[in-house]
Write a protein that binds this DNA or RNA. Sequence first.
DNA 1: AGCTGTGAATGACTTCACAGCA
DNA 2: TGCTGTGAAGTCATTCACAGCT
Lengths: 204, 204
Amino acid sequence: MARLPVYHRVLLDLQAGGQSTVSSEQLAELAGVNAAKVRKDLSHFGSYGTRGVGYEVDQLLADLRRELGLTHDWNCILVGAGNLGSALAKFAGFSERGFAVVAVVDVDRSKVGTHLGALTVSHDEEIGRLVADHGIAIGIIAVPPAAAQEVADRLVAAGVTSILNFAPTVLDVPDEVKVRDVDLAVELQILAFHEGRREPRRTG
Amino acid sequence: MARLPVYHRVLLDLQAGGQSTVSSEQLAELAGVNAAKVRKDLSHFGSYGTRGVGYEVDQLLADLRRELGLTHDWNCILVGAGNLGSALAKFAGFSERGFAVVAVVDVDRSKVGTHLGALTVSHDEEIGRLVADHGIAIGIIAVPPAAAQEVADRLVAAGVTSILNFAPTVLDVPDEVKVRDVDLAVELQILAFHEGRREPRRTG
DNA sequence: AGCTGTGAATGACTTCACAGCA
DNA sequence: TGCTGTGAAGTCATTCACAGCT
C-alpha cells in the first residue's frame, strides 16, 4: 500500500504535537483520504484501535514502522552527481525519514573526489565494492536516460534489489528487483492534461 | 490517464529512431504495460491504428500532444531556491518536454538576486506579479513542509490552477486546483516496505 | 454515544479473447 | 495472416453501512 508512508508521516506530526490518540476520521483528514480506507488499511496488519476512542498514536507508529521496514536505517547508493543527483545527496528529507545516502558515484572522472555535503564522489566502477561494503539494498538512479539501463544492470549485478529511478526510461530488470519511477516531467504533463481541459487554449 | 505521458515519451524515442509505425505490442513493451491496455487507452481519444499494421508514429504523437495539452509550452513558477529548488530550476528535463520554469522565488532575501542557470531569484511577495506577467498556470513547490501551505495559498490567490508539490504535506486547496504530490522519501519507504518482506532483517 | 472492524455493494481498472478490417 | 478495436469477464480497490465493543 502506497498510503502507509503517508499515515506514518502524519502520525509523526501528531506525535510531535503531543497528541496521544487519533481517530480514523482525523487521520483520514490529515492524510487526504477516506476514513473507511484508513480503517481498512490499518486492519490489514492487525490494528489495535479502541472502539469509541480511536488509535493510540505511539502504538500505531510502532506498528507502521515495523510494517514499513523502518525499524532500522537503510543505506542507499546514489548514481549520478549531476544537478539532480547533487540535490538528492544533500536532501535532508531522506535522512530524517530513515534513509541514508552513504555513497555517490558518477562516470565522469572529473567529478570523482569532489564533495557533496559530507560525501565524496566515487567512480562508477566502484559500485560493486560500495554496495558490498555498506550492505546497500537500495539504489537511486539520477543519470541521463541513455545511461540508465547500464547503471541499473550494474546495480543489480552488485546486489541491489530496489531501485528509485529518476531517469525517464523503463528499466528492464529481473522480476525480484523492485523499481519505482519518478519522472518529474510526467508529473507536469499530467497537470497540463488537466489544464488543457479547463481552457481550450492558453499561451505560455 | 497517467500512462499517456509515458507513451508520449516512448514515441518520441521511436520517432527519433526513424520508426514510422508501431504496434500496440511494441509500444506496450517499451512502456512497460500490457498491449490490450495500450489499445484501450489510445482508443479512448479516437485512435487511428491500422489493422494488420499498427499505429503511425507521427500521427499518434500529434494526437497525444493535443490530448496532453502539449501543443504549446507551459510556463511554470518555482517556489523555493534551496537544494531541491536549485536542481529543479536547472533541470533540463522540463524544458525538453515543453515546460519552462520562467520564475523562481524564495522567502530568503539573501537568495533574492542570485542566479540559478539563466534565472534570477525573486522574492516571494512577487508571486502575484510574476504569475500574471508570464501567464503562469503551474506552480512548483520546493519549500520545507511548514511553509508549503502558505505558499500554496499564495499561488492559488495569484491564479495558479495546478501545483506540483515536493513538500511532504497534504495541501488544502480549492477543488478546482489540481495538486500532484511527489514525496521522495515516500518512494523510498515503499521500496523499503518490499525489502522488508524479502529478508526479515538487514542491518544498514 | 462514539468509533472501530468488516461483510456487502459498488465502481474502476485490467485482462482476455475474438470478431472484423487491411 | 496480422493487428486493431471492443464486448465480456475478471480482478482489485473503494465506499457504504452497520453490527459490536468500550
